[in-house]
Design a binder for these strands. Structure first.
Lengths: 343, 343
DNA sequence: CAGCAAGTTTTAAACGATTAAATCCGAAGT
DNA sequence: ACTTCGGATTTAATCGTTTAAAACTTGCTG
């Protein structure tokens, strides 16, 4: 494989000159510049990134940790991150932990070994993992994506989870629902708690007491949505509306609803967090909180790039992005023929 | 940041010994081993991957080129690749070109600069790109994923595209459809042609002539599915069945079908290539060719790993994986009340 | 024409690991 | 006691870049 030394010999200059030409790091006479570039182009030389990074101590690479690659919400975020980074001249490596804390830590270390310049983290644990707390002295800045850890330093970009579920549930209340079920994520997770809080706030404002039997804890997976939805709908007094804390679980609910022969929205209204592309195509189309995945990703990347170029300094920032409710058929107001569902 | 030299000083040995302990590359007395490991663990030392790769000339990293990250079919493939590589001790970097040939080439070069040990390629171009042909002399082995290039050396793992669409269309014919439309991918692409061929073969076997007006060319995007579906259904004599060459375009078709107020499967049956997870949840559930994404990815990674460990040598191999048709409601046989749709 | 400044180009020392080859050291053989 | 042998350890070169600092040009000035 081609090295800078060979280029130097062929262009009859020193390696330093080649390097200077390639990096525009010093004045080089036009004559030599051309001689060098000619050889570089003819031989299609590309500098060894490993050697370069080793020497400069910057890899121009960012690591991103993702809890799941198959959840359709995440790729959108990745695109946001990638687009910004690419334009800023950084590469992205993503690691996918599948909600496994050990794999997550493995990836974190891989990233450190590869000397990434910064990290975008969407991680699983409920409590700040030890390695993050230790990261303290390290050089790579962190950005948390839709997560927040107070005791490990790093910027954060968050969707307004409380406001999102608040809007969703208020919408249901406005449509005369009073028995509103919720399927949340694991109860220790920051995000689950935020989304639950919005639910509670809306109920409270509507003068409705929280019924513990209507609060189910899922794990974000489609299957857990399915199971919890069945449990809820098979109650003696099933809820007339359901708020589901993420898109994948909402898909599971749909399956349960269809299997049980329950009609949506007539028998049970459905609102989901995360507006998946397919929600608009489904029958009924699903009302959902539009979680701005692309913006979330791109903002996180922007903050990281700013930190790296020292445009941004000082204590960790956290930024909250607004979310919107997309009202669709699954939560449409039903013309009141009879008050409840089946007797 | 910690270096091997510091570890060596603290453990009172030479850097060579530390390296030997860490890599088990020579006999080291238990006493020194323990002394070294103690320091390594206490300080949580992780060797610099850049330096290591530079010296050993192997990065234990694989690059993967993807045409789209938001198409839900691709993440499944990535998981297959990643799982196998991780177990074999390799890291994966994925690049997402968004069907843009220039970005694709950029990524290819980034990968070369990072000295990846091998490449998994799902690339866009219709004709073998120049840089691939030049790759010839380079050291990193290639595996094509669901692509095939005869004039650039590399193994290939392919789904049986011809057989898949053949099965799909035969199924439609068996359900008494004779006017069967198809939406293909860009006509120069290898995969589009294969899927078109299966369609033609099934028609021919069923004694049906290919009607050019029923063959539409899409670009794999949801939107192009939508547009082409409208065109087909707004014909004077619309087809009674539709075979769509990928999942995203099928979603577009669904939207068109629903907007036009056409019933599926009563007025038009639908079969898609790529069995997306959500297809089972939709109403009607979509009949689809189950393209084995995970297997495709894991097989590709396996071949690559074998090449790298020299378990596999010799001329490029190409392997074809069988595909299955999942019959669901969208292509259900309709009880013949009247012969055609609306008069 | 020596001296100097400014601009080009080269020299050579890093960066942090790996690894042949050299050295050390103690036990065994004669 | 003196080799000799072999395993444990270290020395030092190397991977392919970047980049201070040195060295070399030129052209100008007094």
């Amino acid at each position: 494989m081609l090295t800078i030394k060979q280029i130097a010999v062929l262009a009859d200059v020193s390696t330093a000159t080649v390097s200077h030409v390639l990096n525009k790091s010093a004045n080089v006479s036009p004559k030599l510049q051309q001689r060098v570039m000619k050889v570089v182009r003819e031989l299609n030389y590309h500098p060894n990134h490993l050697a370069r990074s080793l020497r400069t101590r910057r890899s121009r690479t960012i690591g991103m940790l993702l809890p799941s690659i198959t959840n359709p919400f995440f790729p959108t975020i990745v695109r946001g991150v990638e687009d910004v980074l690419r334009r800023a001249g950084y590469n992205l490596i993503v690691g996918n932990s599948d909600y496994d804390e050990q794999r997550e830590e493995e990836y974190y270390h891989t990233f450190c070994e590869k000397r990434v310049d910064g990290l975008v983290l969407m991680i699983t644990p409920t409590t700040t993992p030890e390695y993050l707390r230790r990261h303290n002295g390290e050089s790579a800045p962190l950005v948390y994506l839709d997560r927040l850890y107070h005791d490990a330093p790093g910027d954060a970009v968050l969707a307004d989870n409380v406001q999102g579920s608040y809007k969703a549930v208020r919408h249901l209340i406005e449509n005369d629902h009073r028995a509103i079920g919720i399927i949340t994520g694991p109860s220790q997770m920051f995000m689950s708690r935020r989304r639950l809080r919005g639910y509670k706030r809306a109920l409270q404002e509507g003068g409705i007491a929280v019924d513990k039997r209507l609060v189910r804890v899922g794990d974000w997976s489609q299957d857990s949505g399915y199971r919890n939805c069945r449990t809820l709908l098979e109650h003696a007094n099933p809820p007339t509306a359901l708020f589901v804390s993420n898109g994948l679980m909402a898909l599971g609910c749909l399956r349960a609803i269809s299997e049980l022969g329950v009609r949506c929205p007539e028998d049970v209204a459905l609102v989901s967090f995360d507006d998946l592309e397919m929600f608009e195509l489904m029958k009924p189309a699903i009302t959902a909180v539009d979680n701005p995945g692309y913006r979330l990703g791109s903002r996180a990347a922007e903050m990281l790039v700013q930190r790296l170029s020292n445009e941004l300094a000082g204590p960790p920032l956290s930024e909250i992005l607004p979310v919107e409710l997309k009202v669709r058929a699954s939560s449409a107001r039903v013309v009141p023929t009879s008050t409840g569902p089946e007797p």
